[in-house]
Write a protein that binds this DNA or RNA. Structure first.
Lengths: 163, 163
DNA sequence: CTGGTTGCAAAGAGTTTGCAAACGT
DNA sequence: ACGTTTGCAAACTCTTTGCAACCAG
């Protein structure tokens, strides 16, 4: 799916630092740590997940700071916020990858990306048909990821066994 | 898009009443009013919107009751909950209409449905490719509806005029 | 220095829950 | 009568905001 190294994450981090510099915004430690975690991640992290990683790195940074840094990152255009209907948001670094949809596991919350190439040409057509000015779209498939699906099958098998 | 009468809404309401009866659950006035509002609506109502309509109908029903009735409605399978990333949920009666996507206006919040016929066959394929067990999907287009788009164009024109 | 940032705590929005009183069957 | 539902208020989760202390340029 992606090359195995996270060169693109590092590059995003550099771009964010430049973005701050251009606007004469200070590159503080908390903000940089948060940016590094979000931008080099391959996951769609939640605020909770970010805080957990920060703690793993031995930093204790307030929640408000995380939220405010994420605002800045979104404003810079290098991060996108998603609401998968879980009751909280997740944040995705804008790697060079093209438009994509999301496969969301309803059980473990894991998010996988998939190419929406085949959909791209249809969406503007649909928008036009309804007089809609298309800004962005969202294509999500909710279900069970491979791991949870297999776990489920085993569970069903166990439950079905005669007692 | 739909026939102009709300026959399908009335039928849903009847089905809900039967559903309650089957499980010996009482058909209370608050619950029935909430069901009637949600099931006969062509809109994707929010809890706030439901409460407003209840007040218009001269009823004062607690928020908790609305939430609990919605739980029941969702459980009955006659209503589906949506999270369009607005910070609250909207509820949609499951009219006989086929699978559909949503056009969500980022300015006024209006939601329009569109047929996803052209997508239907692609989604299971994508799921399979990733070992995913497909339960449901979500196709949304966010942008400006016709009304807000036109308002926007006028505003831009005004702003662009030499002063 | 000076303006932006941080951390904390308090506030805010949407939603859920505990409980006694009221209700439907 | 019985179990369910209701309304209220309190609790809860995620997120935002106010403010004094702090830090980067």
């Amino acid at each position: 799916m992606f090359p195995d190294d996270n060169a693109s994450g590092r590059e995003l981090l550099e771009r964010f630092r430049s973005w701050l510099q251009e606007r004469h915004l200070p590159a503080t430690r908390p903000r940089d740590m948060i940016a590094a975690i979000v931008l080099t991640s391959r996951e769609h992290l939640s605020v909770d997940g970010i805080q957990r990683r920060l703690r793993e790195d031995g930093a204790s940074i307030g929640l408000a700071t995380i939220y405010r840094s994420l605002d800045t990152l979104v404003e810079s255009g290098l991060v996108r916020a998603h609401d998968f209907g879980e009751g909280f948001r997740r944040f995705e670094p804008m790697h060079a990858s093209a438009q994509h949809g999301h496969l969301v596991c309803s059980r473990c919350g894991q998010v996988t990306e998939f190419s929406t190439d085949r959909f791209e040409r249809l969406l503007p057509i649909v928008s036009d048909e309804h007089g809609f000015q298309h800004h962005r779209h969202r294509v999500e498939i909710h279900g069970l990821c491979r791991v949870c699906r297999d776990a489920d099958i085993s569970a069903v098998a166990r439950a079905g066994r005669p007692r």
